[in-house]
């Protein structure tokens, strides 16, 4: 009886050691995931997609029913917004034309277009401490780690790991995320970090002591890394709190993207990468394992 107890204790101790080793090994920064993890994730992808689409449909029915009550006001507001956006597009087209002409005059090379891979969000964080998403596109579709991910309103995050048919996206709100950005008004360099809990706010760290940042400033990506091109909207400064004696500044940014309601995202391929061909959302929905 005592021998059996010892054997059970020995096995339990060994299992604890193995578990600690696994947690330790997976806590280190890694390039990609192991074959076992990738196979498990790819195997679950169809289940994720099914569960996600059923929930989406049910939520869509509910949202549709609610929207019917406000359809008239919503229609008028959207028409006004479309008019405003048409004027904005015309203005931006003119600016783009001027920009191209100036680049040509200065003999600067034209900016290489980035291929875009549209993907569907199929799974959400496994707990509330991390900001991650799983998307239904992987290496087979040209997705690679460290590619930037954007949505219609702005930057979303970057690819942490990619398996054959799915990838994991680290959101800007994740505590492991830090993105180089600039204040659009002044061009000052800043770092945007995730706070690590749901609240959809980001922390902004100025990189210069005399940074001029005020509430309402728009933050865009700096384009200094290969993850994002320059000028992708990140968010707007919501609060600037100066510490005691003016020695520190605590800046909070409200991101343009609501990470909790994302359905479709676009993965930005490397400039000139032919593998990451553009595809409409859901175009490769049948490509799963």
């Amino acid at each position: 009886m005592r021998a059996r107890g010892r054997a059970v204790a020995a096995v339990a101790g060994l299992l604890v050691l193995v578990l600690v080793a696994i947690i330790f090994l997976t806590s280190r920064p890694r390039e990609g995931v192991s074959r076992l993890e990738a196979a498990f994730r790819d195997g679950l992808t169809p289940l994720f997609m099914t569960a996600s689409r059923v929930t989406q449909s049910v939520a869509g029915l509910w949202d549709g029913a609610v929207a019917l009550f406000n359809a008239h006001d919503e229609n008028r507001r959207l028409r006004e917004e479309v008019d405003a956006l048409r004027r904005e597009v015309a203005r931006l087209e003119e600016l783009a034309r001027q920009n191209e002409a100036l680049r040509a005059a200065l003999d600067l090379p034209p900016e290489a277009p980035r291929p875009v891979i549209f993907a569907e969000v199929i799974a959400r964080p496994l707990n509330n401490w991390w900001g991650v998403l799983t998307i239904n596109k992987g290496r087979r579709h040209g997705v690679e780690p460290h590619m930037g991910v954007v949505a219609a309103h702005g930057a979303v995050g970057h690819i942490r790991s990619a398996s054959a048919f799915s990838s994991e996206v680290i959101l800007l709100s994740d505590p492991r995320s830090a993105v180089g950005a600039i204040v659009q008004r002044t061009g000052e360099p800043v770092l945007v970090e995730g706070l690590g809990y749901p609240g959809t706010r980001l922390r902004l760290r100025p990189l210069t002591a005399e940074a001029d940042i005020v509430e309402g400033d728009v933050i865009v990506t700096s384009g200094m890394s290969s993850i994002f091109p320059k000028g992708v909207p990140v968010g707007v400064v919501e609060e600037v709190a100066v510490g005691p004696f003016g020695l520190s500044v605590d800046v909070t940014v409200r991101p343009y993207v609501d990470f909790g309601t994302l359905e479709v995202v676009a993965v930005l391929g490397a400039p000139g990468d032919g593998r990451a061909a553009s595809a409409a959302p859901g175009a490769a929905d049948g490509d799963g394992p």
Partner: peptide
């Protein structure tokens, strides 16, 4: 098993 697809701190949720 929840941790495996994420590949980060695998086993801690367990």
């Amino acid at each position: 098993l929840m941790d495996v697809p994420g590949g980060h701190l695998v086993g801690l949720s367990g």
